[in-house]
Simulated scan of single mutants.
Amino acid sequence: MTVWKPKGSPFYYCSFVVKKQRFSGPTKLANERDARAFEKRWKAAEKRKLDLHGALHGRDMTMLDAVDRLTKEKVQQNGRAPYRDRDLDWLVEHIGPETKLSEIDAGTIAAVIEKRRQMCRWDDPKYGAVRGGTITQSVLRPLSALRNRAIDVWKIPLPDMPKLSMYFGEPYARTRELSIREELALLPECRDYRDLVEFILRSGLRRESALIRKSEVFLEEGRIKVWVKAKRNKKLLEIPITPAIDRIIRANIDNPTDFVFTYRKRTKNGVVAMPITSSGFFGAFKAAAARAGIADLVVHDLRRTAGARMYRATGNIAAVSKFLGHASVVITMKHYVHILPDDVSIAMRAAEAAHGDLVAKALANETLH
């Protein structure tokens, strides 16, 4: 690598060779140290371009280059990155930025999953180990997308890298629900957040979506219209206002803020109503569960409970899926509807009773004839 300043020029020039190709030109920098740093970055960028060009013709690619390319192509395709930068950075760091995709095998994947599983939520031991859903979203799905893109689009053969879908079947899905007895113990301990907890149990909304504004409530139409999380962006979800939801909203809507749900905050001027925030609700809910003596309960369990209770009351999985705003019934069945042994027993007894009725009717018809 060479850096020099031509006579009469205020800027430094540089020249270097990458894979038998020479690159040279002005750095447009007047400081030699800055020019050398520019040259280093330029050379690294040209090397990466040549590696990517080679990959297009069936050659291998490093983990770092593959992640960069996957992100760029997904942004061009969908207008946004499908995975969080911190998750991708973590994968690159623990698999190795210079590790070739062809070097990733089942052992590599198992090792990185185990590393993630041993980590704590929010890097704090008091919150316990990360949950299965976090491992799926932060490790398995990005790696699966990377593998599929490399094989199907970039035409890179990866004979040793297994399908990541084989790991999705591990017992990661959370099945925790709130029992009626726990609900009766929890609600009095929620204090200012009690109505919000009841609202989520009735509406099935996620924590962020449940913090509705007054402008999203249409009491005359009997609807709440709120933008909720979707696969690629957001979508408008209409929540019917049932008598229970109507009671909750009317008890909270007459406050001086733009939001329906508030909490009381002490200030120098007295007690004022403040909108409930997502993070504030998280902490308050955790404290309420501890006061009620309820272990292993998080806010999202309220949404899961709402879906499970509706399914057990109606048996209509399609209605539950629409109620929860899922794009597919498969998502509902996998993550929110858990058939317990008691449910199976009840269904079996109902089937036997129905069969007995059919037999009795058949015998009655034969007697009449």
Rank of each mutant, 00 (worst) to 15 (best):
N148T: 14
V153G: 04
E177K: 02
L219G: 03
R191S: 12
E216K: 01
L201I: 05
L196R: 03
I180T: 02
N148S: 14
G132S: 09
I180S: 03
I200K: 00
L143I: 05
W154P: 03
L187V: 13
E177W: 00
R206A: 13
P125V: 09
R191M: 05
W154Q: 01
P162I: 09
D192N: 13
F168K: 11
A173Y: 12
P159A: 15
E170Q: 15
F168E: 10
L143G: 03
E216D: 10
W154R: 04
P125N: 08
P142G: 07
R202L: 13
D160I: 02
R223K: 12
I224R: 06
R176Q: 11
R181K: 13
K163D: 14
S144E: 05
V139I: 15
S215Q: 09
A150M: 00
R141F: 14
V217I: 01
P125E: 10
R174W: 13
S215F: 01
D152S: 11
L184Q: 15
L146N: 02
G133F: 08
Y167K: 01
R207T: 08
E170W: 03
K163T: 11
I156G: 07
I224Y: 00
G133K: 01
Y172F: 15
Y193A: 10
L146M: 11
I135W: 06
F168L: 15
S215L: 03
G128I: 09
L211K: 07
P159D: 15
S215T: 08
E177D: 07
L205T: 05
N148L: 11
P159N: 15
R181L: 06
R213Y: 12
T136P: 00
L186S: 06
A145D: 08
L184A: 14
R131M: 09
A210F: 04
P171S: 06
E198A: 13
S165I: 11
S138C: 10
S165R: 13
R174L: 11
G132T: 07
L211M: 10
T134D: 02
L140R: 02
A145K: 10
K126C: 07
K155N: 09
Q137A: 14
R191E: 14
A210Y: 02
L143H: 01
A185E: 07
P171I: 05
V130M: 09
E208K: 12
R149K: 09
D123M: 12
S165K: 15
F168G: 05
P125K: 11
G204S: 04
S215N: 05
K163E: 12
S209D: 13
L164S: 01
A150P: 00
M161T: 11
E216W: 07
P171M: 04
M161Y: 12
L140G: 04
I151N: 05
D124A: 13
R147E: 01
I135A: 01
V130T: 12
I212S: 04
S203D: 02
